[in-house]
Design a protein around this nucleic acid. Structure first.
Lengths: 119, 119
DNA sequence: AAATTTTATTATTATATGGTAATATAGTTG
DNA sequence: CAACTATATTACCATATAATAATAAAATTT
């Protein structure tokens, strides 16, 4: 029997948080340490309201922590684990590209053969 | 400087494919081997058109392979890697729950202390 | 306290997407 | 070829969500 939705749903939700480019950009900004919202806005080039909303989603998901400091609010990675995930996916995508390029090379070699001894 | 969107976008897209409960259900169905669409429909309880659409998305993402066989079409996991990802996330979520329950226990112990020696 | 800065929220719009019914397509069997 | 089965596609609706502008709220400075 298949895994019940109750088990899979939280996993899907976790992936969903990571499935938006803007949120990944925000997270990457925090890779080098805690940053204020203003700094995040500057680094990503995203709009203020937009960043604020994404940070709320990331905080609710438990991926970042929030610490107000004076007028500013600093956000920090709470689960460095997410970078492991991103790297795994990135590596997998790279391997795909490598395999594709290898196949292309094979194809070219075969075409060479055909040109040398046609028919 | 942060990673450019051109690098992060494919990663976000990869996560996006895995961020839907129905698609995870379909993938889990294939964990034990290739299955026809009819079998997938039966195991998941999802609608026919729905399953067909999700399978298309999974195939385009390169996560499953498609092999017609007579009237049926069999789909198979093309990247077992996805189950590693799911398991990593699942483990992480489990650790979270464990940590929460531990905190709860600590809180209860503290309340006991307070009850024994009030003030 | 007024002005300023920083962050959060609300309202709105545009777009994307999941689900379903209906239809189309393709292969199989009588 | 007609009937049937399996899968794909199309059209449609409902919902979710990303982005932005406008506004609010909170802390700081003058």
């Amino acid at each position: 029997m298949a895994l019940p939705p109750t088990v899979l749903a939280p996993i899907a939700d976790y992936f969903k948080v990571l499935s938006e480019l803007s949120r990944l950009q925000v997270l990457c900004t925090l890779k080098t340490g805690a940053k204020s919202v203003t700094e995040i806005i500057a680094e990503t080039g995203l709009g203020q309201a937009n960043v604020s909303k994404h940070l709320k989603i990331l905080a609710q998901a438990g991926l970042v922590s929030r610490t107000p400091q004076g007028v500013s609010v600093y956000y920090e990675i709470a689960e460095p684990f997410i970078f492991d995930l991103c790297e795994l996916v990135s590596d997998r995508l790279a391997k795909r590209l490598a395999a594709q390029s290898e196949q292309l090379k094979q194809l070219e070699a075969w075409q060479q053969t055909k040109a040398v001894s046609p028919q």
